[in-house]
């Protein structure tokens, strides 16, 4: 009745339409956003979820198998990871793995899981250190992290690690490149919203290293940062750089409460 009245008096002019659109938009923003934190998994269509959930379908499991091979490899080594951590890594501390990157008292800095594997290798094995993000180290990281699958992520910040956390935070909120966008623009402010044909996720790191359907390869967090920087038309940092490690640390904290899903399957 009311609506009919309005229409017949032709009062739905541009101003009213705009008001209505603004109202609808503000509603839709609230409805579309996901609670924080939400795994990238929950942004996937069902068929992609099935691929991640099934070890025989998940292409990332190849990398886990390779990692296990390196983990047990004694051919060129005086020893192997498996000698201490169990044939299939059964003595690894799942809770600790889900807490990386973590502050090391011994090294007096925050250590990523890749760095920890390297440090362990330098101490006990022959062919370390490996280069950051090189295939063998990525395979080992993927295997070790997959052992913590289902474990709740708990990345801690202490007085000693506060500065490193703050560095990561400042990078996360810094505008980069010709696009001039921050990480937080897409992955906090507009998460859940459609960017042309794709939905913006929270950019959570709990599934990394992930298998990406787009590139058909296992992708580390630092490699993904490089791709984001490319999208922003910004000059990337080096993989393994202090900046990327700080970003990984900060984003690890944002992922607290989610479960480890390595190897996740993502676009």
């Amino acid at each position: 009745m009311m609506q009919h009245d309005l229409l017949s008096r032709r009062t739905i002019g541009p101003k009213n339409i705009l008001a209505i659109m603004a109202l609808l938009l503000s509603f839709s923003l609230n409805l579309l956003a996901e609670p924080f934190p939400t795994s990238g998994y929950d942004f996937l269509p069902d068929d992609m979820k099935e691929i991640q959930d099934d070890d025989f379908l998940n292409p990332g499991m190849d990398t886990v198998d390779k990692g296990l091979m390196h983990f047990q490899d004694e051919e060129y080594e005086s020893s192997s990871c498996a000698n201490c951590h169990g044939d299939h890594g059964e003595y690894l501390n799942r809770e600790k793995i889900a807490g990386y990157p973590r502050y090391s008292e011994e090294h007096e800095r925050v250590i990523t899981l890749q760095e920890q594997i390297n440090l362990c290798g330098i101490e006990k094995l022959d062919r370390f250190p490996l280069e950051y993000d090189e295939d063998k180290l990525v395979a080992l990281e993927t295997f070790v992290r997959s052992k913590a699958n289902g474990q709740i992520i708990n990345v801690e910040v202490s007085d000693e690690s506060r500065d490193f956390f703050e560095l990561g935070k400042s990078l996360y909120n810094r505008r980069f490149g010709q696009m001039g966008m921050t990480c937080s623009h897409c992955h906090v402010q507009y998460q859940g919203i459609m960017l042309r044909g794709s939905k913006l996720t929270q950019g959570q790191t709990n599934g990394f290293p992930v298998y990406r359907i787009d590139s058909r390869q296992i992708t580390t967090i630092h490699q993904r940062y490089n791709e984001c920087f490319l999208q922003l038309r910004a000059e990337p940092y080096q993989r393994g750089s202090r900046e990327y490690r700080a970003l990984e640390y900060y984003m690890g904290v944002l992922s607290n409460g989610l479960k480890v899903e390595t190897p996740g399957v993502r676009y």
């Binding site: 010709q178 910004a234 000059e235």
Partner: peptide
Amino acid sequence: IMPGYYRHPRDNHRLANA
């Protein structure tokens, strides 16, 4: 979040070489 479509290149942080 909107990019500046005619922002001066010097006002971009860490602009890619290309």
